[in-house]
Amino acid sequence: MDINYVSPVEKKRKRKNSWIAVTFVIFLFASFVVSMNTGYIRLTPLEVVQTIIGNGSAKQELILFTIRLPRIIIAILVGAALAVSGCILQGMTRNALADPGILGINAGAGLVVMLFVAFMPTQNFNTVVMLPIAACLGAALTAFLIYTLSYNKEKGFSPKKLLLTGIALASGISAVTIILTLRLSPEQYQFIAIWMAGGIWGASWNFVLALLPFIVLLIPYVWRKSHVLNILNLGDALATGLGATIKKDRFILLAIAVILAGSAVSVSGGIGFVGLIAPHLVRRLVGPKHQVVIPISALVGGFFVLVADTIGRWLIQPSEIPAGIVVAVIGAPYFLYLLARTKVSS
Rank of each mutant, 00 (worst) to 15 (best):
S35K: 09
G324Y: 03
N106V: 06
V208P: 09
S85G: 07
L46R: 13
I52Y: 03
W201S: 15
S158R: 05
A107W: 05
S268D: 05
I178V: 14
D236F: 04
G39V: 02
K14N: 14
L229P: 14
D309Y: 07
L46C: 08
C87Q: 03
V267W: 03
A81P: 13
E61G: 13
I231D: 00
Y221T: 14
W223F: 02
L285H: 04
M1F: 10
F125Q: 08
N124T: 12
Y151K: 15
Q190C: 05
L234A: 14
A80I: 04
A197L: 06
Q317K: 15
A203T: 09
G331D: 06
Y337K: 09
P288I: 12
L149G: 11
N106A: 11
K248H: 06
N55Q: 13
A257S: 14
E187I: 13
K153W: 06
T38D: 10
S185G: 07
T93Q: 11
A278D: 03
F251K: 06
L281G: 03
I252A: 04
L162Y: 10
N55K: 15
I20Y: 12
A140Q: 06
G275I: 11
K161P: 04
L238E: 04
G262W: 02
S150C: 13
L306W: 01
I277E: 06
L253R: 02
I133Y: 08
G56P: 09
F24S: 06
P279H: 08
S204A: 14
L229D: 11
A332K: 02
F144C: 11
I74K: 10
P121M: 04
T93K: 05
I219A: 10
N206C: 00
P100I: 02
S185E: 12
A175Q: 01
I41W: 05
A328H: 07
V176L: 13
A75V: 10
R284G: 15
I192V: 15
P279S: 08
L211Q: 09
L141E: 01
A81F: 04
T38K: 14
T66A: 13
S297L: 06
S266T: 11
I277N: 04
P8K: 07
Q123Y: 13
G202C: 09
I256G: 05
A278W: 02
S319Y: 12
A244K: 00
A257C: 05
S266H: 11
I271L: 10
G110R: 01
A80Y: 02
P279D: 08
G275W: 09
Y147E: 11
R15P: 04
G324I: 02
R68A: 05
I321T: 12
H290V: 10
M36N: 09
Y221D: 08
I294H: 03
A81C: 14
S85F: 01
G198I: 06
V286F: 07
G54M: 12
L69K: 01
G301T: 00
L149D: 01
A239Q: 09
W195E: 06
K343G: 12
G104V: 04
R250V: 13
Y5T: 08
R313N: 14
I256T: 05
M196E: 06
T342P: 13
V305K: 08
L103Y: 09
K225N: 11
F273I: 03
A175H: 03
N106K: 04
G324L: 00
V208H: 07
F214E: 09
R94C: 11
T38E: 01
T127Q: 13
F125P: 15
C136I: 13
